[in-house]
Design a binder for these strands. Structure first.
Length: 826
RNA sequence: GCCCGGGUGGUGAAAUUGGUAGACACAAGGGACUUAAAAUCCCUCGGCCGCAAGGCCAUGCCGGUUCAAUUCCGGCCCCGGGCACCA
């Protein structure tokens, strides 16, 4: 036992524990095949400047799990790093006239100190920053490998173009259709960009979701919907009188071929070549198409904007009826999704119905309700349910499935269509017209085309010492960066000046942590010791994009022979957002909460504990400081109780001869331990861990209030040890010092998790609830061994119950042993 | 608009997902200690009726299933997240 201050002095306690961990290098993770490993990872932060409460909560959750697993005897790896490329550094550069690199590195230095102050058990020797050449060089290398395998390609894609600032804008930078700095109306502009073929992995990404048993159902549902597998038919409409072979056929995809005979028009995207051709001889149409350019490149915009269209004057020939239907240009059809053309069935699709109403197009019913419960009134709305075909010639009378087959067969025989499986998932566009990112390692040669930078020339270094102003990426203006010789033909060529989407870096950092000092290869054998990540923790806002890209990247690395698993993250905990005044905390909204004043006032342990106590980890939390005081008070109380306790060693509690009060305290101790172990391991609800520990401490201090005997000391010792052990993952500094005081010279970080003593849990009596018609009337204590009939009898004779059953007849008695009796009367 | 969540006292929440609604805290009010304050300790604390014993109502709203619903089903309202260039 060490002597300690009777007062809780968090700053002193935290300094003591942290210097112990540092001197002993306590959190360095070393590969050891003889031990079970546990890789615990919380999503690394973007170095925005300082930590906010969302970070504190996120990293506290990770740290709690890591420390808990260490006490379970696992060989734990918990690393930390920086998602260091990104847009905010460029914005800061413009605002403060500071180079993005300098700004980023100084933010990292500051935030690293903040993380250290919070006492997270990181192996800092593995720290990495994605903007460092030793990191992104492997990403560039990997991209050239993918290029050689044909998994990347270049195509035209649309961006938001600010015509005043002459730059490409991110969606976030477009506010109400205008550039956030210039205020100019944005224009859609098509430019060549690099894509990675994630769509080739659609089916595998979908199938493997079912193997992710440790993932929340909601995340799997979201990803599954995002991938959006559907079964349908791809079919051709011929364009009447068209002589140009490329424009003769309009290919459309539908999941509702049963409604095919209800097609009354076809719609194409404003960027469709057919629209462009028609516009050449139609001034009004050309103007209309031009106007559709002032829409931000975002699905939410397209879905909520007013649906507009215009007749091209060109007709399409229906593949079955041979009738001619008009071809419209419609602003809601996406050129980048599918073929840029859709068939329209206003009778049975609500959007088509509204469009048809607006432009006076025919609405034709071809599906009749198959049950009397649903009504079809095409004057009011489209009838979108499945039913039986009518007005469809030879297909009349078929149901959805029969019609699907029959129409597929018919079209197939005519060479006009076939069954197709379609995915909503689109290829991953990775080009960004930005400076602060990893350079895309390609060289554009007029003779050879796009040529990857040879391995020996990697990395393509991003020049860090630059002047950054509001005219966009300076890379294109730097001759020393742009002008290179073509690696193939050696003639003068130009380096690609676009940089990678930052999701590229965050898609594989978890793997690089296992061997970030490896300078000869992207990953080495250590990756397969640590991977997959056993527990990944991060905000729910990453449920789709980041987590899907990381899963995809893992499969790419597997196919390259770099890792031997199929999925990167075994178990996933999606932390709810930390909100402030009901909205996501972000620097741009200016509603972040700085944890530092709280840490200075109460210490890191109180802040960590309150962040865990405020709500379950997966629930969103509107931050408020009120309540922090309560966590602090609790720690002070525990400190006082432990400091005032005279430790006693006892290695066999079961052998003690205990009185009833002592047995009661042991019961509470082991009930609490059992519940808390489950809360940590299975439920991952740390708020209830804390509440249960508070209950145990309340019971212990009540016990101490009536205690006089020296024989009480062992059960109190056991209760206090249990409380300190179960609190250790949450308030590690506090527990570190008190554990020593309780007579343990070895550090609590390596103390084994206590085991539940089943003999302490034995109870003879049970509390049973008595209900009449489901309403609580009384509670009685009965022996656990009581027979069901006897319990029923006791209930029927109970005074409180009798008052409610005397006026009616007992119809039924429901007995749930050891829980309740419900008497049904009328 | 589409996809995914959430809604329980004055506040954060609990109830292990069909079996005692409000554990554990915060705030508030009252009291003890103190010259005073802070700290600490004790009591009250969902609403209505009642001196009390007790009763009735109550988990966003409406309806359903059940002996029993915060929990399951149907419909609606509100809030949050994502929608492919914020990370």
């Amino acid at each position: 036992m060490s002597s300690i201050d009777s007062q809780y002095l968090p700053q002193q306690v935290e300094a003591e524990a942290q210097s112990y961990w540092q001197e002993n290098d306590s959190f360095r993770a070393v590969e050891d095949p003889s031990r079970e490993k546990f890789y615990c990872l919380a999503m690394f932060p973007y170095p925005s400047g300082h930590l906010h409460m969302g970070h504190v909560r996120n990293y506290a959750i990770g740290d709690v799990i890591a420390r808990f697993q260490r006490m379970q005897g696992k060989n734990v790896l918990q690393p930390m790093g920086w998602d260091a490329f990104g847009l905010p550094a460029e914005n800061a550069a413009m605002q403060n006239k500071v180079a993005p690199a300098k700004w980023t590195y100084s933010n990292i230095d500051y935030m690293r100190q903040q993380l250290k102050r919070l006492g997270y058990a990181y192996d800092w020797s593995r720290e990495l920053a994605t903007c460092h050449r030793d990191y992104y060089r492997w990403e560039q290398w990997f991209f050239t490998r993918l290029f050689n395998k044909g998994l990347v390609y270049k195509k035209e894609a649309e961006v938001n173009w600010d015509p005043v600032d002459q730059t490409v804008l991110a969606n976030e930078q477009v506010v109400d259709g205008r550039g956030w700095r210039s205020g100019a109306l944005v224009e859609r502009r098509s430019i060549p960009q690099w894509f990675v073929r994630i769509s080739q992995f659609s089916q595998e990404l979908l199938d493997d979701l079912s193997s992710l048993e440790g993932w929340p159902e909601k995340v799997k549902t979201m990803q599954s919907n995002w991938i959006g597998r559907s079964e349908g038919i791809e079919l051709d409409f011929e364009v009447a009188g068209e002589t140009d072979a490329a424009l003769q056929h309009l290919s459309v995809y539908t999941t509702r071929p049963d409604t095919l005979l209800g097609v009354t028009y076809v719609a194409v995207a404003p960027q469709h070549p057919l629209a462009a051709k028609a516009a050449k001889v139609n001034r009004e149409l050309a103007d209309f198409i031009n106007q559709q350019n002032n829409i931000k490149v975002a699905e939410a915009e397209l879905a909520t904007m007013e649906k507009l269209g215009m007749d091209t004057g060109v007709k399409a020939i229906h593949p079955i009826s041979q009738q001619q239907v008009p071809i419209y240009v419609a602003n809601f059809v996406l050129m980048s999704y599918g073929s840029g053309a859709v068939m329209a069935v206003p009778g049975h699709d609500q959007r088509d119905w509204e469009f048809a109403r607006k432009y006076g197009l025919d609405i034709k019913q071809v599906i009749a309700p198959s049950s009397k419960d649903s009504i079809c009134d095409l004057e009011q709305a489209a009838y979108i349910d499945k039913g039986v075909l009518i007005n469809s010639g030879e297909f009349d009378g078929l149901d959805f499935q029969q019609a699907f087959e029959a129409i597929a067969q018919y079209l197939n025989a005519q060479g006009k269509g076939e069954k197709t499986i379609n995915y909503r998932l689109r290829d991953w566009g990775v080009s960004r017209q930005r400076y602060w990112g990893a350079p895309i390692p390609m060289i554009n040669c007029t003779a050879c085309g796009a040529v990857p930078v040879p391995e020996e020339d990697l990395p393509v270094l991003l020049p860090e010492d630059v002047e950054f102003d509001d005219s966009g990426s300076p890379l294109g203006r730097m001759a020393e960066f742009v002008d290179v010789d073509c690696p193939q033909c050696k003639r003068p060529a130009q380096r690609e000046t676009d940089t990678f989407d930052t999701f590229m870096e965050s898609s594989w950092y978890y793997a690089r942590f296992t061997c970030r000092d490896q300078n000869d290869r992207m990953l080495d054998a250590r990756a397969n010791y640590w991977l997959p990540v056993d527990q990944y923790i991060g905000g729910i806002e990453h449920a789709i994009l980041h987590l899907l890209y990381a899963r995809f990247y893992h499969k790419l690395m597997r196919d390259e022979g770099l890792v031997n698993s199929d999925e990167p993250f075994t178990r996933l905990l999606t932390q709810g957002m930390v909100l402030k005044d009901g909205a996501k905390m972000s620097k741009s909204k200016g509603n972040t909460v700085d944890p530092m004043p709280l840490i200075e006032k109460y210490g890191a342990d109180t802040v960590r504990m309150f962040a865990m106590f405020a709500s379950p980890p997966d629930q969103s939390l509107d931050w408020s400081d009120s309540g922090v005081e309560g966590s602090y008070r609790f720690l002070k109380r525990v400190w006082k109780t432990v400091a005032g306790h005279d430790p006693v060693a006892c290695d066999d509690y079961a052998a003690l001869e205990l009185n009833d009060e002592q047995k009661k305290l042991r019961l509470k101790t082991h009930q609490t331990l059992e519940k808390i172990t489950d809360d940590y391991a299975r439920r991952q609800t740390f708020n209830t861990v804390i509440a249960a520990t508070m209950e145990l401490m309340n019971a212990t201090t009540r016990f101490l209030d009536d205690s006089g005997s020296d024989t009480d000391r062992p059960v109190v010792q056991e209760a206090l040890e249990t409380a300190i052990l179960v609190l250790a993952p949450i308030v590690p500094h506090f527990s570190h010092v008190l554990w020593n005081h309780l007579g343990h010279p070895d550090p609590i970080i390596d103390a084994p998790w206590p085991t539940v003593d089943q003999s302490a849990l034995k109870q003879d009596m049970a509390l049973v609830v008595l209900q009449v018609n489901g309403k609580l009337r009384d509670k009685i204590e009965v022996p656990r061994s009581i027979k069901q009939e006897d319990l029923e009898q006791l209930a029927l004779e109970n005074v409180a119950v009798k008052r409610f059953i005397s006026t009616g007849t007992v119809r039924k008695v429901i007995v749930v042993p050891e829980r309740l009796v419900n008497i049904v009367v009328n």
